[in-house]
Write a protein that binds this DNA or RNA. Sequence first.
DNA 1: AATTCGGGGAA
DNA 2: TTCCCAGAATT
Length: 401
Amino acid sequence: MLLDFRSQSRCAKMPRVSLLEIPQAEKKSFQRRLLSWFSARKRDLPWRGTRDPYRIWLSEIMLQQTRVAAVISYYERFLEKFPTVEALARARTETVLARWAGLGYYSRARNLQRAAKEIVAHHGGKFPRGYEQALALPGIGRYTAAAVLSIAYGEPLAVLDGNVARVLARIGAVRGDLRASALWRGLEAGAQELVTRKSPGDWNQAMMELGATVCTPKSPRCEECPVSAWCRARKLGIAAEIPEARKKRATEKLTLAAAVLLDPQGRTFLLRHADGDGDLFSHLWQFPAMETSAQAGSELQNHLHNRFGVTVRGSTVSLKSARHAVTFRNIQVWPFLMRVAQLPDFRGAKTVPLKQIGGLPISNLTRKIAAAAIVHFKAEGGLTGTKTRTLENHNGAAAKA
DNA sequence: AATTCGGGGAA
DNA sequence: TTCCCAGAATT
């Protein structure tokens, strides 16, 4: 058996993951099998084939909790705009967020730029080689530090992400909640014992690739697995039961009414922060909105009048509702189109032509609301001659109605 | 140790 | 529909 995950008895409640009983010869053949599988079957991804630490780093940040397929176009478009760490460091945060818009977890983008500034200021513009120095940068945790240093610099540091954790847990037939910190630490130690000194970057990517394409969460393709001979879960017939299902927070329904204000010049009104709810889409522009129990346009009008001094003239048009799921919240938004003579001058707000908001840092929810308004105009023939590319972001991703 | 942050593709 | 993804920061 390659891996032995028995408790190591210092503390019965803190099971230790140990690889102590690995025969050296078996470990080597395990490594050879996986590396040669990776060499033959690895996907051709934009960040492979470079050793530029900036590019490796960028890819790793974008890939945090985000699938490869979703990242590729963002990665390419981001590098187009910010080809070097210096370019990123001197850019406006607004511009950086605009390129990130739609990818989610926006604090990643802000931390990325903060780290870029630090690297330029304190590391001579080069991603630091030391683990502790890397960890000290904003947005870099144990996973990302190990990933960048191993892939870019060949440092023998093992990564542990969701993929690797699943692979190791199945190989060792480890039950329990892998995310529990004690167990996660044990898996990190297990991963570190396996990492190859010669090509740690390839090794790490091979482990993750195996988890992403073969040792998948559901219906693992064990017959295609290059290391199935060492897999304890497969031997026990419990591969599908590992890892244990993660406990999830119950979803909450949230109903919002949002205002698409429109002045005679076709401009609309955006805010940095939602009125009702806190840090959702932090630092992104959004339409003024409020929580409602039902589809209530007049309630929204009152709110706008009290808060921004807006007086809507004429009727408000109820637009097609948009649904959006963010973490545990299930949001339904009722957008209302409201024409005003003049948009309010409000601190922290912005007025911009509705058809140009596609280029701003906005969430996909805001994009959907804008899409509903544009659809309305097209049906009405109100924006003759205007192209509706306005809803696409910089990555060509468009909101789906 | 528990929570929170986005969004979408696959099952 | 549900799940979970090349996680990190905050509390």
